[in-house]
Computed example of a mutant assay.
Amino acid sequence: MEKLMERLNTAFDLTDDLVKNLSVQDLKLTLGDLPSNTIGEQIWCIVGARESYLQAVIHNEWVGFSCSLNDLTTHSSVMYSLKSSSKACIEQVDSKDLNDTQIDYLFTLLEHEIQHHGQLIRYIYGNKLSFPKSWNNRYAV
């Protein structure tokens, strides 16, 4: 369990590092002519997954997807949602013993976050943006 929490913290920190270096204009970028949503909408999905899987852990069952991040037009709103969703996950999970179902939800959350990292790498390359040092170290981008 300790290793899982370490990996979740690392994934959350990497996401924060990437987004804090993006501008509000960057959050509106897509992958050009390819079918894609915006970088901000990728972040919306990350926040929603964090919040939704946290609810699944709390209730010991899937209760549906929801996301509190409603404002993708201000950088501070996006960063606040990232920070508060990661903090809520870590605090809730650190405070209790979890069963196998709850641990599976956390592994799925970790997989989801990392899948978005892969997608965000394409967005950063596709829009000729730069990666923070933490991403260079972790993913050799």
Rank of each mutant, 00 (worst) to 15 (best):
I103C: 02
I103A: 02
D104C: 02
D104W: 04
D104E: 08
D104K: 08
Y105V: 05
Y105Q: 08
L106T: 01
F107D: 00
F107G: 00
F107T: 00
T108D: 15
T108A: 14
T108Q: 15
L109S: 05
L109A: 09
L110R: 04
L110C: 04
E111W: 15
E111L: 12
H112I: 01
H112E: 04
H112C: 05
E113M: 07
E113L: 06
E113G: 05
E113Q: 13
E113H: 12
I114D: 07
I114F: 08
I114M: 12
Q115W: 14
Q115D: 13
H116E: 00
H116Q: 07
H116M: 10
H117C: 13
H117F: 15
Q119L: 11
Q119F: 05
L120P: 05
L120K: 00
I121D: 00
I121Q: 02
I121T: 00
I121M: 00
R122I: 02
R122C: 07
Y123W: 12
I124Q: 02
Y125W: 11
N127Q: 10
N127I: 09
L129Q: 09
L129C: 07
L129E: 03
S130C: 03
S130F: 08
S130G: 03
P132G: 10
P132F: 15
K133N: 12
S134W: 13
S134G: 13
W135T: 07
N136S: 10
N137C: 05
N137H: 07
